[in-house]
């Protein structure tokens, strides 16, 4: 395990929650969805609404592992809303994180997305700018362990957590290589498929989490298909974190007018939904799963 010497916000957060005896609520939004201003307001409100860890999506034109909800969210962000002449860029995404860090120095932010926008930005420049902005970790869907030299190893050297996805197809033979350079936490994708689709039941997830934990001491967060506070609570009983994404970005979509502009109350409603999810996670008993 090549974790950086100083502990990151991700590691500190999971350690604190473990002491509290509960799981983390990990929330996903796409940076710039539906526009930069609204997205920044949602981001700023997430910690108070109960998000423990924030995944901020770096929009990409070709999100191959995402379902319709996040695909549409990505398109909204790249278009930038009806008033914008240019949509979300990597520089704006990093700017959102820097803005967030002015008022919040403890909530971990993980940038999540696909490799090409990072590769095009330049790996070294990206890591330097992300670190500077206050990014704590990266999840890059199309970088399996076979491609660790691309970004994972440089990220670890720069003190940025590289969080790997483990899936039901990651068998015991493969798991050690998936975990080898992972740090921060492990993101277990509970079903084979795309985001926003079917969910796995808690019993199946529980077994899978136990299997991963027999190979690592890292916290295991579980995602894909978690859409309600009840579902988040069920996962929070058997894992160290529950990740919710598509259900949150669907809430954003519900509050857009015909032109794609946000209607009054969008930010409050989205954060209200996050609060409900958080109540679910906080109400779940996780002590017996540890």
């Amino acid at each position: 395990m090549s974790a950086p010497k100083t502990s990151t916000r991700v590691e500190q957060k999971f350690a604190a929650l473990k002491a509290e005896g509960r799981a983390a609520l990990v929330t996903f939004i796409t940076a710039g969805d539906p526009d930069l201003e609204t997205s920044s307001a949602i981001l700023a409100g997430l910690p108070a609404a109960g998000a423990d860890v924030i995944e901020l999506g770096m929009p990409f034109t070709d999100p191959m592992a995402d379902g319709p909800s996040i695909q549409r969210s990505t398109i909204r962000a790249l278009n930038g809303g009806p008033k914008a002449n240019k949509g979300q860029t990597m520089a704006k995404t990093l700017g959102m994180v820097a803005g967030f860090r002015k008022t919040d120095t403890t909530t971990p932010i993980i940038l999540m997305g696909y490799y090409n926008p990072i590769y095009h930005y330049g790996v070294d420049a990206f890591l330097a700018d992300a670190k500077e902005a206050g990014v704590d970790g990266l999840i890059v869907v199309d970088l399996p362990p076979e491609e660790d030299a691309e970004l994972c190893l440089p990220a670890l050297a720069a003190g940025v957590n590289f969080i790997r996805l483990a899936t039901p197809t990651t068998n015991d033979k493969r798991l050690p290589s998936v975990l080898a350079n992972t740090s921060g936490f492990v993101y277990y994708v509970s079903v084979n498929g795309i985001t926003g689709g079917a969910a796995a039941d808690a019993a199946t997830v529980s077994k899978a989490v136990a299997r991963i934990k027999s190979h690592t001491d890292l916290p295991v967060a579980v995602g894909f298909g978690i859409k309600t506070p009840q579902a988040a609570a069920a996962i929070a009983r058997v894992a160290d974190g529950a990740v919710v994404g598509s259900a949150i970005v669907d809430r954003i979509k519900e509050h857009l007018d015909d032109t794609g502009a946000p209607k009054a109350g969008l930010v409050e409603d989205v954060l209200g939904f996050v609060r409900d999810l958080s109540d679910g996670v906080r109400g779940a008993r996780v002590g017996d799963a540890q």
Partner: peptide, 20 residues
Amino acid sequence: ENGRFGIFGGRFVAETLMPN
């Protein structure tokens, strides 16, 4: 052996597909 032609090629896929 890594599927590269110079710097090109490779295996840039989601973990779910790697075993396949």
